[in-house]
Amino acid sequence: MSEALSVSSSSQHANDQRRQSVKPHKKRWRHDNWMGYLFISPWLIAFFAFTFIPIIASLVLAFTNYDVLSPTWRWVGLENFERMFTRDPRYIKSLQATFFYAFTAIPLRLIFALAVAMLLNTNRRMVAGYRAAYYAPSIVGGSVAVAVMWREIFGRNGLINAVFGTDVAWLGNPNTAIWTLILLAVWQFGSPMLIFLAGLKQIPREFYEAASIDGANGWQQFWRITLPLLTPIIFFNLVMQLISGFMVFTQAFVITGGAPLDTTLFYALYIYQRAFVSLQMGYASAMAWVLLIIIAVLTVLVFRSSSYWVFYSSQED
């Protein structure tokens, strides 16, 4: 993203120099400033009103015991954070569930997405149709309708038990419930698949031809050519999936509601329960800020690690 930006700003630079000869520099510059802020003003106003100020407000709330009902509320310092990690076993459970979900569902989803993208990276007939079929679950995946459907598929009388002749309470068993949600996430591998597919099409055919002349088999070609050249895309997908993986809400809310024994009490679900069911908005704000910090730390870690495993080919642009 930043690369693209620097490219455009350098071309803008060239344009400015061209313009300078036509119009007085200073006037032009002031005019552009006005127009620039005029055009981004809708975003800028909304950013302050609905993002920046609320975030600061939520940081302040995190140090209070504010709830909507009682008129008195006070500064409690770090009490909310202390309570979270020492006196709220449900919070610890929600952390465990969220981390387990993210670190299982995201790698599985990306592996699946890459495997299917490689299957579809061919000029055979019907590929467009297959691609649509594989992508279809992803466009409806976040909907309540699909969540309701998933609940019935894994219900006692549901599809899975009927097809396999089993009698398992998939959603009632603390060992299996979270796996139904992981499976739902893996089932929706469509977007990373399309991004991988676009990346695979960029790899020059000659690389593979040269490799096979040198006697490299398919497996070696995958490890030595495909995977290294795809690492920037894997990196991008990983960051995007990580962020969204920590925010899943609808599926858990509709399918399990956090049960059984809080094994699927995802972070976002627990914040919702605290903020809008028990109305402990101060405590919930503290939880939201911890989530923000977790996501930020993980993102930074992924970015830091990228210099060890992400391969940027020097011939880009």
């Binding site: 609320p54 709330l61 976002a268 908005m281 939880m287 939201a288 800020w289 923000l292």
Partner: peptide, 8 residues
């Protein structure tokens, strides 16, 4: 995360 915005 939308959670840091929705409460305020």
């Amino acid at each position: 995360p939308v959670q840091v915005q929705i409460i305020p």
